[in-house]
Amino acid sequence: MRLFAGLLPPQPVRDELARALEPHHAAWPHLRWIDQENWHLTLAFLGEVAEEVLPELEIRLGRAASRHAPMTLAFTGAGAFPSARRARVLWAGLRDCTESPGGAGPGRGRPRIVRLAESVMAGARRAGAVQADEGKRFRPHLTLARLRADADVSPLVEALGPFAGTPWEAGAVHLVRSHLGARVRYETVAEWPLTARAPGGRD
């Protein structure tokens, strides 16, 4: 089964962000906008995982989640990979409201969500659920749209720059199965609360 571990933003937060994006859809018809029902923050992409690995994976991910405290996050601004002028992916930035300002998007510092992602990936690796570790640095973001070819989305990134979403609590890690097809569908297989009493966490 094709799996990833991530955080799922609550519906009101998704609705708020969707309203901010809606006026831009008509002006950017070549973007493949992601259905807001499928919005998620990936902590670890696992790919194809054998059924027999699942029990150990669930133990390891539950253990990882227990070492981290809930965190208050907020969507803010926008950006693109690999760059706004040669974009293939449009994303919304993320801010940890319980830490110092400045963590508005991918690549800024090492906030708690990064440490959580490192713990989750370490647990998945120990369970044998990661077949190939590409060594990519975790960059927290919410994918909003994809492009089939490089395009300059600088005006869109600039227009979305002032967006500052309502803070929300991320309180659980979800193990999610991807059902591929004409329309991608996600199914939560298991979830574990973030139960540590203080911020931080270790692998």
Rank of each mutant, 00 (worst) to 15 (best):
R2T: 00
A5H: 05
A5Y: 07
A5C: 15
L8N: 13
R14C: 07
R19V: 05
A26I: 12
A26D: 15
A27K: 12
W28E: 06
P29K: 01
H30T: 13
W33D: 02
Q36T: 02
Q36W: 00
L41E: 11
T42V: 02
T42F: 05
A44F: 09
E51V: 12
V53K: 14
V53H: 14
L54C: 05
L61E: 12
A65W: 06
A65D: 09
A65H: 07
H68T: 09
A69R: 15
P70D: 00
M71S: 03
T72S: 15
L73Y: 07
L73C: 06
F75R: 01
T76R: 15
T76M: 15
G77R: 13
A78I: 15
A84V: 08
R85W: 01
A87H: 12
A87P: 13
R88K: 15
W91Y: 00
D96Q: 11
T98G: 04
T98P: 02
E99M: 10
P101A: 05
G102F: 08
G105T: 10
G105I: 11
G107T: 12
G109I: 00
R110H: 14
I113V: 11
I113G: 06
E118S: 05
E118T: 04
G123A: 12
A124M: 05
R126C: 12
R126V: 10
A129L: 03
V130M: 11
Q131M: 06
G135P: 06
G135I: 07
K136G: 15
F138L: 09
F138C: 13
T143I: 03
L144Q: 04
L144E: 02
A145Y: 07
L147C: 04
D152F: 03
D152S: 04
P155Y: 14
E158C: 13
A164W: 06
A164M: 09
A164C: 14
G171D: 04
V173M: 03
S178R: 10
L180M: 01
A182M: 04
V184P: 04
V184L: 11
V184M: 10
V184G: 08
R185K: 10
Y186N: 07
T188C: 11
P199W: 13
G201K: 03
R202L: 10
